[in-house]
């Protein structure tokens, strides 16, 4: 009962943040600010939906001892780690490539990078 509530809570948080990420992607003005919205969706949204799978797998595994749920739990954990790494590295690569190819942040109060590398 408590575990079910925990799984539901994780799913609700995850889906809510993913929805906010989509909203931000539509509303924000330029590439960099949009990327803030999408990193938010991946970090919180997808980590919490995967965390729901981890909790479910651990719960069934402890109740029945069926080792295929151990596999499920571990693979969901690996998915979280992989998401965290690829999200950080790929959004850095995208932002760097965009800045190098001349897409400057459009509403911006300051741009120290453009001052260094004209």
């Amino acid at each position: 009962m408590i575990v079910e509530a925990l799984i539901l809570l994780c799913l609700v948080i995850g889906v809510a943040f993913n929805a906010l990420g989509v909203l931000g992607l539509l509303r924000f003005p330029d590439l960099y600010t949009r990327m803030h919205a999408t990193t938010k969706a991946t970090t919180f949204g997808s980590i919490f939906t995967s965390a729901a799978v981890v909790v479910y797998g651990a719960w069934i595994f402890l109740a029945t001892g069926d080792s295929q749920f151990l596999t499920l739990l571990i693979h969901a954990l690996i998915a979280i780690v992989a998401l965290a790494f690829t999200n950080a590295v790929s959004s850095h690569a995208l932002a760097r490539a965009a800045h190098k190819s001349g897409i400057l942040p459009h509403p911006a109060v300051v741009d120290r990078l453009a001052e260094v590398k004209p």
């Binding site: 943040f17 906010l20 990420g21 909203l23 931000g24 509303r27 924000f28 330029d30 960099y32 600010t33 803030h36 919205a37 938010k40 970090t43 919180f44 942040p105 509403p107 911006a108 109060v109 300051v110 741009d111 120290r112 990078l113 453009a114 260094v116």
Partner: peptide
């Protein structure tokens, strides 16, 4: 830190109060 930053960006998505810039 991630939780605090997530709530902050969620607030910015809903209100559009942004002041972006690149700092060193």
């Amino acid at each position: 830190e991630m939780m605090k930053a997530n709530l902050d960006v969620a607030y910015r998505v809903l209100t559009m109060k942004i002041r972006p810039g690149i700092i060193r």
